[in-house]
Design a protein around this nucleic acid. Sequence first.
RNA 1: GCGGUCAUAGCUCAGUUGGUUAGAGCACAAGAUUGUGAUUCUUGGGGUCGCGGGUUCGAAUCCCGUUGACCGCCCCA
Length: 436
Amino acid sequence: MAGFQSLPGFRDFYPEDFSRRQHIFRGWRTAATSFGFQEYDAPVLEPLELYKTKSGDEIEAQLFSFTDKGGREVSLRPEMTPTVCRMVGEKAGALKRPIKWFSIAEFYRYERAQKGRLRAFHQFNADIFGEAGPEAEIELIALLIQCLAGFGLTKDDFYVRLSDRDLWFFYLEALGFNDAQARSVLTAIDRYEKAGDDAFKVYTEAHGVMDADKKDRVLAFLRIKSLAELEAALAAFNSEKLTARLADWRKVIAGVSAMGLADFIAVDLSVVRGLAYYTGFVFEAFDRKGDLRALAGGGRYNDLVRKLGYADLPAVGFAIGDVTTGLLIEQRGLAPAHSTAPQVYVVIGGAAERTAAFGDIQALRAAGLRVEYPFKDLAFGKQFKAASDSGAKVALIYGGDEVAKGVVKLRDLADRSEREIPRDQAVATMRDLLRC
RNA sequence: GCGGUCAUAGCUCAGUUGGUUAGAGCACAAGAUUGUGAUUCUUGGGGUCGCGGGUUCGAAUCCCGUUGACCGCCCCA
């Protein structure tokens, strides 16, 4: 193969691919605006320091970073959260609360590409700033569900696992773990589903063998599958912190249930999410069959805006990726066939008829209809095949007889019925027929 | 960053122990068909066999390197 390849992990979007991508973006945007979120955008290139401050120096290995011609250390954005925190932080004093924003943007990570994970990908991000209570979680979880359900995906296709980092810390504290030990336990929890008992190796190396009774209680917590089980597990502890967290859990579950979305969510404390800046509820969406990577992930990050140098502003947010979402839509056969097909295909008899047709074609297009016609004179048979292949609903036929009579023949391409309409009513008739 | 599998037309693939000019289906284009589309038939364009080197009289085929894709590990904001 001569010529050039695209860079590893980067994709070309041919019209068919682009059409699928637009379908996904449209679904996300429709969901977000119906929830009252406002769209924003930001630079693709940011100071490297922004990401190091948020995630630590190790993050640089995973970034598309370089030194620009002015000697600045910069990076293509690997995520939106630090950027949106900056934007909100800069104007925090002037923004009405709650701040509900979303974006659809491309991100870049210097990682080995795998199924469902590329070096350049798009994400939908939604965040709520300025609301410390679980009302923000209810709103975002409902939006996350709608961002997938809007494509026709159901509770049998995906679900949202809900967990809570604060709850874990309070629970581990009540069991007698110190802070360093608790962090190490959470790392093990994160790996437990995949690695089994080996997940505790790091803990054992750092803090010695865990007391068998404590470990049982950690693993029991991990297996909790419902709010009722959670309440039962915590009943024995007389901890104000745990009681307060439990009250928030009841609010979230009750709110989501009242929206009729209970079947989409599962209590699953095995979700703790890798990086440590999450401060409360965390959640991830997965496909039910479990053969894809996570569809979406998010959680509360109350300290991040302050950590970046701005006001103390509570926040919760999530992101959905286009790659995994696209794979799931594809797998379930929910991808649309033609989203930008012409509505009208104009069939033209010859050179003289072409002149007549052009006037009407321009008028129809100016009226907002999607209209297509063949560049070259073709046999009628060819033109009807092309009309049918194009996905158009109707054909307008400009033959010698029609033009002479001042009419145009309108053919329904589905049932092949035909009728004549006066040329001067073509635009009005077509607008009416196609409802625009 | 580490390991495994793979790479032939736009797509899916065939190609014998190394042997002449590398094939098929689909797709695309033209014609049969100058006023009616999903059929059929005919014809056509399109390949430096991922790239580079080596072995050989001769390489799509064997060897080495390299690039990319897929799978797993690390990581997953």
